[in-house]
Amino acid sequence: MFKRKRLRIANHDLPFQMVLVAFGIVTFFPLVLVVITSLKSNTQFYHNFWLPELPFQFGNYSSAFRIIWRYIVNSVLYSGSTICLIACIASVAGYVFARFHFPFKTALFLGFITLIMVPGVLTLAPRFVLVRDLGLVNTPGALISVWVSGGLVLSTWLMRSYFESLPQELFDAAYVDGAAERQVFFYVSVPLARPMIATVAMTTLISSWNDLIWPLVTITDKDKMPLAMGLMQFSSDFETDWGTLFAGYVISSIPLLCVFAVAMRQFISGLTSGSIKA
């Protein structure tokens, strides 16, 4: 734990700290109000807008959870499989691009990174027709296939640059010890690339978790909706039941909150590396 002494505010910092505290209050105020409201019944809410009021309505949480859990599970499954697939495919592809010379390598790699220039809006409509013709509409495949291929562009590039940055001596040592290429990949390269794999996983998690438009056009069944889309459905189903609505909002923020708490550094690096493909 931190020693309390360390967090004392120096005189020089005081004016800046005051501005920051004000800024922090404004930032968190809407969130706090959402939490407060999530513990009220509608009568309490209309009677007293601002302050928490007893008794707390924990029942809001259980009724919201009965609806929301389904969407959370779906999102975990969809984003989880997307992350696994991207991590596997991108590390192999990145490794091949980083460590070997072969004919058409440059052309193939250009085929990857040129796509960074292609925005999602351009491909949205034709991609929907394609996925529909493949019979994937209203299946998890519609989401996962498109999220994986979209994420591969950036991930392969990131993995390639990471593998290129590893010192040649490491590989030489493994080859001298008689390791086959497959072993070098699994026992040397992948363990070393763990930080970059974590970054790739986070980038993928954040973008797939928050994607609203693509599920909106491809998924129709309530049971199959991922969280972002499910929340939209939820908010229209519970339009005026404020307590339950906001309890649902709080519940649905918990998964990313946990990831953030456990892996803050990777979360932030995943965020920044996603900026290259905006």
Partner: peptide, 12 residues
């Protein structure tokens, strides 16, 4: 990866 990008990115 190449097949996926061809189908889901380049084609659309």
């Amino acid at each position: 990866p190449v097949a996926m990008l061809l189908i889901f990115e380049w084609l659309p």
